[in-house]
Design a protein around this nucleic acid. Structure first.
Lengths: 169, 169
DNA sequence: CATGATTGGTTGAACGTTCAAGTCACACTA
DNA sequence: TAGTGTGACTTGAACGTTCAACCAATCATG
């Protein structure tokens, strides 16, 4: 709970103004992208990232635990989401041949078609809502600042941003 | 759906790197703040902003529709959330005296105590996860960039960021 | 001054996420 | 080689959000 010993520095006017804007951005940008995907593809952002991650793997498959890191979600959330994608016929699951504890998720041909079909629309929306609004420098700065923040909010996935791989691979 | 006429410019390496980091930030920062509030105060971010907005009003009360703008949520979401806060004894609702269509939400004494008690912890977390990591310039830049993005993702609430008031007030 | 439209808000069902438990395969250890 | 532990998932219930009705009060029009 609140520790009364060390007093809290409230936000200055400038800090508050910046924080309000940042808060609004972190609330509206993800949901705007989510809305586009739901509308045009019938899936949400998390499911999109699952399909995208699988499609970028050379084998079009990944272990569930690796996929969870790439898609930035808990294993439980992933398990439910892959269940839905499986029911739609875009993903299959099978126990790993080498280690019966692992489960491999793999993109079906239909899933491959699906992601190929919807990716352009999604990228277009990312451009429209973010990238095309900013100069290359602004975008790079925003990226660098974000990386800094992620270093505190989610150190595990900060590593992913630097190397493109989960830690220990 | 995807309009095949105008080809999509895929992301460059720099754009992609920035976008991955920004995405990670927009996913992890809100949920980290949410976790702190749930843990220390038993409420979520949206409910926090409801209490905060009410506490900042001179009358400690707001119309539901105004409150929805300040707390950045739909009226339906607000109605459910205020219902929960009402059950906890922190908020009350009453029909407006002037216009029977309007409902006024008002902070109870217990609600006032609650927000006074939990605000410091929340601010401390905002500092820890964001503000203290950045230089004043970095923070201001991030704020300005965010404002720009919100101008496209949510033009209505962009106005709020400039004036501190909902449009038309 | 009726009546149709609009505004402000509520409700309930469907859906997705979280959380706590549970299962199963394999790895250690005595 | 039985027993204990651990890692990798899966499951189901609880909870919050969304979405599509719905209702009730007021406004505008003829």
């Amino acid at each position: 709970m609140t520790s009364p010993d060390e007093p809290v520095a409230w936000l200055s006017d400038q800090e508050r103004a910046a924080w309000m804007a940042i808060l609004a951005m972190t609330m509206t940008l993800p949901s705007a992208l989510d809305a586009q995907l739901k509308r045009d593809a019938g899936i949400n952002t998390f499911e999109y990232h699952i399909l995208a991650a699988l499609s970028e793997s050379p084998t079009r498959s990944l272990q569930m635990s690796q996929l969870a890191v790439f898609a930035q979600g808990s294993l439980s959330r992933l398990s439910h989401a892959v269940g839905r994608l499986e029911r739609s016929g875009w993903v299959r699951r099978q126990p790993s041949a080498h280690d019966g504890r692992h489960t491999e998720a793999l993109l079906t041909p239909a899933g491959w078609d699906k992601i190929q079909q919807i990716a352009p629309g999604h990228v277009r929306e990312v451009r429209r809502l973010l990238i095309d609004l900013l100069s290359p420098t602004q975008l790079a700065d925003l990226g660098a600042t974000s990386r800094l923040v992620v270093g505190t909010t989610a150190p595990e996935s900060a590593h992913l941003l630097d190397t493109g791989l989960p830690p220990g691979i």
